[in-house]
Design a protein around this nucleic acid. Structure first.
Length: 543
DNA sequence: AAGTAAAACAACCGCCTTATG
DNA sequence: GCATAAGGCGGTTGTTTTACT
């Protein structure tokens, strides 16, 4: 690609290399028009340098203080989608694709939420992938979802971003036995720790004829995206694909759909903690992710791997995520040897052919072809295993077992609550022992690492990692004295999706879950904890 | 080899929530 | 309580690359 001949701060009309006029933000006359369009390597360098010095956040100050003639939002987007260190580039693996399908079936077009469960992936990537998939599947006349991926009704939307949700349309899904549906309400499958769907017989699955379902709200199918304005087309496109229903057995009348492991490290907003330097506190997700994810081969991080090994992220098998930054803050790119890691190397298998070009040190090249190439072809090694076990249907429909699990998890939660307090205090006390390394990351002292591990170990033993999100949220809701949300913010360290462009706040998640649980188990929403077990008797028959 | 469609990617826009004064 | 700024999210559009004919 030809490069943009304009410098970063080049005044006057800004044009892309293709001659496409780059719009400006319409700044007032006399003020410098903000540049738009593709980023150059030089701009990237400036932005990275700025983040190195000042940390993430305060994006609008980038333009003021760094000379980068970009608006704050643009800077943030660039950083989040391309420059932040723990990005995982390249094509989606089959496991990731599978996970995306499941997540979309579960959440709808909540890209940020989905991204929070796909380490190193951005919401933009997922969104682009999905849109492309929708187009392709529609054109091919294939259903959007494999048959073995059942769409759970997306959780009720939180107070935020409810304006433009495109809900998937549940099809081939029957209301579980005994689950009565009030007239006019949504047919909502149980979304507790496990789902158990009743399926129609094989005949219906083969015929693509959706079984009768309870009335659904007039939400939009994902097929009704702007890419597919013809609504009529939607009806002809089944959502589930029997042909790819590898794990679905028509003979099995039902299965249990386990919820994916909750994302303990959902990005949180830490505005309130941002200090004058723009840094988040050392125990914030931002800093923890920086210290645990961004690791060069020469700077091994004990904490990160052990955190991963402890299964303290949503995708434990992403444990050996190694990253070598595709840039050098000193302004040059040193020769970076291919990883000698014994872990799975992506090699070329996941690389888009377009990214295989050699890196050219041309600061004016649209930088998308720089960092991407470097990071993909040379640096990233990753244990290419994504836990999709959560999506594997099981023929397990045992309410008693479910309740036992639930009780055990509640007990476990209670037992570690006290330990958590002490651990948090320990962490806080160690904040001032942390230092910054050359990359502007917080480097934890060895003692801090140890304490972190202790916390994580505690949580791990407390089965927090396996605690269904619904349960933890519900517990938080019931027992307001010790919000579970703190666990997320403190415990997770945000290793799985550090710096995600998206920030699914714990508040929104909790709100979602509270609403969700309230809708599912209204009897539980009570302060009389002792009565909760009895209320389980009022649960609808899940299976 | 050229043309075209599809896919992949990047970036922007508008709206919203949250934080802050 | 209100206004404003900052940040986040989802939708959309435009460009480039790839695959196919």
């Amino acid at each position: 690609m030809a490069h943009n001949g304009n410098g970063v701060n080049g005044g006057g009309a800004v044009h892309s290399s293709e001659g496409r006029p780059l719009e400006t933000s319409g700044a007032l006359e006399g003020t410098k028009a903000l540049k738009k369009g593709p980023w150059t390597a030089a701009e990237d360098q400036i932005l990275m340098e700025y983040v190195r010095k000042h940390g993430e956040g305060n994006w609008n100050s980038v333009q003021r203080n760094s000379g980068l003639n970009r608006c704050g939002k643009s800077c943030r987007l660039r950083w989040a989608n391309h420059l932040r260190p723990n990005l995982r580039k390249g094509a989606f693996t089959p496991e990731e694709e599978r996970l995306i399908l499941e997540l979309h079936a579960k959440y709808g077009n909540k890209w940020a939420r989905m991204a929070s469960q796909l380490p190193g992936r951005t919401d933009n990537e997922i969104k682009n992938y999905w849109n492309t998939r929708v187009k392709r599947r529609q054109r091919q006349g294939l259903p959007l979802y494999p048959l073995d991926i059942k769409q759970a009704q997306p959780q009720q939307q939180s107070h935020s971003h409810s304006r433009s949700l495109s809900y998937p349309q549940p099809t081939s899904l029957t209301i579980p036995t005994g689950l009565t549906q009030p007239a006019g309400t949504t047919a909502m499958p149980p979304t507790g720790p496990t789902f158990c769907f009743q399926f129609q017989t094989s005949s219906s699955s083969q015929s693509h004829e959706p079984p009768p379902i309870a009335p659904t709200p007039p939400h939009h199918s994902p097929l009704s995206s702007p890419h597919h304005p013809k609504s009529g087309h939607n009806h002809s496109l089944p959502l589930f694909d029997p042909a790819t229903a590898s794990s679905f057995s028509a003979s099995a009348p039902s299965f249990t759909f386990h919820r994916p492991t909750p994302t303990l490290g959902a990005p949180l907003r830490y505005k309130r903690y941002r200090d004058s330097f723009g840094f988040s506190p050392p125990d914030s997700p931002t800093t923890q992710r920086n210290s645990s994810i961004l690791r060069t081969s020469s700077m091994p991080d004990i904490g990160s791997n052990q955190q991963f090994a402890a299964g303290n992220i949503s995708m434990p098998d992403m444990a050996s995520f190694h990253f070598q930054p595709p840039w050098n803050f000193n302004g040059y790119l040193p020769p970076l040897p291919r990883s000698t890691s014994t872990q799975f190397d992506f090699g070329d298998s996941l690389l888009s052919p377009r990214t295989r070009s050699l890196y050219s040190v041309n600061s004016e090249l649209p930088s998308s072809q720089v960092s991407q190439t470097q990071s993909q072809s040379d640096q990233i090694t990753i244990d290419n295993k994504v836990d999709v076990a959560a999506a594997t249907p099981e023929t397990h429909c045992n309410n008693n077992g479910f309740l036992e699990e639930l009780l055990q998890e509640v007990e476990a939660l209670a037992s570690v609550a006290n330990t958590r307090k002490a651990a948090i205090g320990q962490l806080r006390s160690l904040e001032d022992k942390q230092v910054l390394d050359g990359y502007g990351r917080w480097l934890a002292t060895s003692s801090t690492d140890t304490s972190l591990l202790e916390v994580k170990s505690v949580h791990d033993h407390g089965h927090m990692n396996s605690m269904p999100e619904d349960l933890s949220k519900m517990f938080s809701f019931i027992s307001s004295t010790e919000p579970v949300s703190d666990w997320y913010s403190t415990d997770s360290g945000e290793p799985s999706n550090g710096g995600q462009s998206s920030g699914v706040t714990e508040a929104s998640l909790e709100f979602d879950m509270q609403k969700h649980m309230a809708s599912l188990f209204p009897a539980i929403v009570s302060t009389d904890h002792d009565r909760v077990p009895n209320n389980w008797d009022n649960l609808p028959g899940i299976c």
